[in-house]
Design a protein around this nucleic acid. Structure first.
Lengths: 173, 173
DNA sequence: CTTCACGATGTCAGTGACTGACATCGACCG
DNA sequence: CGGTCGATGTCAGTCACTGACATCGTGAAG
């Protein structure tokens, strides 16, 4: 269904694609589609739970002496391996999302949830709430900018390196 | 209609309130409601265009020697006066939005649009694209954290001061 | 081998968000 | 006074989503 949805969204656009269209191409019923995905947009955001769990685990396992900002950065960077291999897929997916405000909204919500996960994980390490929020937001800012650059690149560099460079540029501000 | 919607959302929740309910309480038709607001959520985000314009103007008028980060911060801080007086209203509105993911999505989209406005205004001043993106995201991070603290406060301090302090804390990371 | 339980799917009817087409109505313009 | 125009009402239609119920395939228990 995920493949069917991505193909249809790319071919004819998100709004022009009905849930029934996706279901039909996937060989199931519309009702079945909605049993697997909470709504039509969710079909593009399947891995987000996995990513959140990974980020939380990474932060929990990070050395205690690491600063909040560096810990948050390490957390968000840990998702890079999940994406490194699928540059084409990520680019295709990003193009679809950028083309539709409703999908962009959903992506922003997922990213905001990730920020909350990071902040919560930092607080669990004893970081002050306000500092945790700021570090989480800042790490996410670096990730977003780095990811956008990585996705736009024809010859993809390493995503993890992109994030590192972007974070360095951020510190220079 | 805005008042009717906020009241109903607060009373019975966003999902439990139909567009027809809002229209009825406001004394108009459902069709008329949708002529004024693109969708049911939009009714809570009326001033966002004004804010974006204000931010863009502020950045355009900022002294050229100001650093990108400080310029972005000045831009986002310029919306503070619009909110200072309406602390109760902001708090009430925030409570409604936090209570519903769909509304949170819309808010995130508006904030992301603001980030884009800031970045674009910085680029127009000759700031490098990547730097502009980073500065815009960072300023927005400071604003979000500061605004959350301001909204949560019982005895509201000055929002502009909140943003300044938060930005200072951010630099300390 | 039969039976039973259960998870995944199909079917169907219903609600509510939105949209397009058309009619109406009141203010203002010449 | 007739005409124009913007705002509103009316109505029918599409589509996202949901709840209730039937069906079916599989695998465990007897």
């Amino acid at each position: 269904m995920i493949r069917a949805a991505m193909d249809l969204f790319a071919e004819q656009g998100f709004e022009q694609t009905t849930a029934g269209d996706i279901a039909e191409r996937a060989g199931v019923t519309e009702r079945t589609f909605f049993r697997h995905f909470a709504d039509k947009r969710e079909v593009l955001f399947d891995g987000s739970k996995t990513m959140a769990a990974l980020v939380a685990d990474t932060i929990r396992a990070a050395p205690p002496e690491l600063s909040p900002a560096d810990t948050a950065l390490a957390g968000i960077t840990s998702v890079a391996p999940l994406l490194e291999d699928g540059h084409d897929h990520s680019a295709r997916r990003s193009r679809i999302i950028e083309a539709n405000p409703a999908l962009r909204e959903r992506e922003l919500l997922k990213l905001a949830s990730l920020v909350e996960v990071i902040a919560e994980a930092l607080r669990a390490r004893g970081v002050a709430p306000l500092t945790a929020d700021l570090a989480a937001h800042t790490a996410m800012a670096a990730f977003q900018v780095a990811f956008a650059a990585w996705v736009a690149a024809d010859e993809p560099p390493a995503l993890a390196a992109c994030i590192g460079e972007t974070a360095a540029a951020l510190r220079a501000l």
